[in-house]
């Protein structure tokens, strides 16, 4: 399985998908005008990975400073995909890091996992 490493741009975060370590890292700001070209390749790679590898555990480290409303839909799809994998037996952990002052990102984490009972979200506030 091919790893993904996408550098951070002005409007999209850094992405590192490390299938050998069963880990995904997302860090930066995300506000593309059209989120589809950014999210679609990542979502299809992850879907394929979960279906073929059926990992016993998977960890997503997310550290977003800012995200636009259009991209929150993409994130919701990402969480939905993680939840499906969780339902099929993968132990899913999401480390949700955010500036301790920033209640919008803190609340977004909780909103994104709402109804997704197979995703364990761990809040990681930090002092920016």
């Amino acid at each position: 399985m091919q790893a993904i490493h996408a550098e951070r741009t002005t409007v999209t975060p850094e992405i590192r998908f490390l299938p050998a370590e069963h880990r995904l890292v997302v860090a930066g700001e995300c506000y593309p005008e059209n989120p589809l070209p950014f999210f679609s390749p990542l979502l299809s790679t992850l879907k394929n990975y979960f279906e073929t590898h059926k990992p016993t555990q998977f960890e997503a480290q997310m550290q977003l400073q800012y995200i636009n409303s259009a991209s929150t839909m993409g994130l919701r799809s990402l969480f939905s995909l993680l939840n499906d994998a969780g339902e099929r037996g993968t132990d899913i952990r999401v480390l949700w890091a955010y500036d301790a002052e920033d209640d919008a990102i803190e609340e977004l984490g909780a909103d994104l996992v709402e109804d997704f009972h197979n995703v364990l979200l761990e809040h990681q506030p930090f002092n920016g």
């Binding site: 409303s69 839909m73 799809s77």
Partner: peptide, 27 residues
């Protein structure tokens, strides 16, 4: 309302006038 819109992501594909389900306005 924001949470409800986020859960209802399918709406984005059925409403051609309001792409993004009004999430921008709520934000």
């Amino acid at each position: 309302s924001y949470r409800a819109q986020l859960r209802n992501a399918e709406h984005a594909h059925t409403d051609s006038v309001s792409r993004g389900a009004g999430l921008g306005l709520l934000t």
